[in-house]
Amino acid sequence: MLRKLLIFSIVLTVISGCSSETSVNLEAKSVALKMKENPTDEFIPKTINLVGIGDSLTKGVGDEAKLGGYFGRVTEKLKQQDNIKDVKVKNFGVKGHKTTNLQKKLNDEEVIKGIKEADVIVMTIGGNDIMNVVRNNIFSLDFKPFREEQKKYKERFKSILATVRSYNASAKIVYIGLYNPFKYMLPEISEIDTIMEEWNNDSEEIILSDGNGVFVSVADIFSSTTNGKLLYKDEFHPNEVGYSLMADRIYNSLKYTELTTDSVSRKE
């Protein structure tokens, strides 16, 4: 009987020792929880405010597909970017507007508000300024009237850019250059190509001097016959194919641009 008690006591001691050791070992083990890092701002989708100003090309005149011309197509392309949650748009393009008209339009309260909220501003202007010179000198076209008007255009363009910047110092401003719609309708007036190039050079110099401006050239798109007919039946505005090619060019100029600016973060 005594022997049984002794054996039982030893077994209890061993079991108790094992339990204590296990308990000590369990208590000694620490569990490290690794906190997941928050994603950086560049991976957080943003809402972009896109504003259009200028003439009938920004309005989308000639787009029989009713997709909003280049403006509507660029909007849809931006919406497909992973880092963009949504694109809010305001289009203030007006058919027939020249630089003088746009200068006045920039005084409208609705336009001012739209520009102030914009992250990206796209603009077409100048085509009707040149068309006005053509109309007024149709029977005696030479370089002189175009170059006289070019000087005035250059000053008005600077004024437009300065006004936009006074409303919004940080938005990306994209200016879409001029093309020659008379190339096939009036092929004998080859001087128009030179005029367009000179006006585009002035516009590019001014927009790039801004530091946050982009010049998008489209003259070569409309000077080629590779893609077939690119003008609407009025032989002045782009058709849906022309607008699609313009939109591709404009979007590609924005695709690798940092659109998640401080202004976007502030508004989110």
Rank of each mutant, 00 (worst) to 15 (best):
F146T: 10
L57I: 06
F157C: 05
L26V: 13
E191L: 14
H237Y: 02
T226Q: 11
M246L: 02
I221Y: 01
T47S: 08
E27I: 15
T99Q: 03
G114S: 13
N128C: 14
S170M: 10
I207L: 07
K46L: 05
K34Q: 12
K267L: 07
M123R: 04
D262S: 13
L26D: 07
I195A: 04
V133A: 07
G93V: 02
G52Y: 00
T47L: 05
G126L: 01
K233F: 12
N91L: 02
E235M: 15
E149R: 07
Q103F: 09
S170Y: 12
L12V: 14
D210F: 01
M35V: 14
D234A: 04
L186R: 15
K154R: 15
G96W: 11
S190P: 05
K267D: 04
A32W: 11
N83H: 08
L26P: 07
D63C: 05
E64P: 02
D63F: 03
I10K: 12
G93W: 03
E188D: 13
K105A: 14
T100M: 10
N200M: 03
F43S: 11
D119H: 04
G60E: 01
L161D: 11
N201Q: 15
N252W: 04
I121F: 08
F236N: 03
Q103P: 08
I7H: 04
V216M: 01
S244E: 09
K85L: 09
D210T: 01
H97Q: 10
T260S: 11
D129R: 01
I10R: 01
K77R: 12
S263N: 10
N212K: 09
K77N: 06
K113A: 11
G69V: 05
A171W: 00
V24D: 07
K113L: 13
D41K: 14
T124E: 02
E204A: 14
E188G: 11
Q150Y: 09
G69D: 00
V14A: 06
K154S: 08
V11N: 09
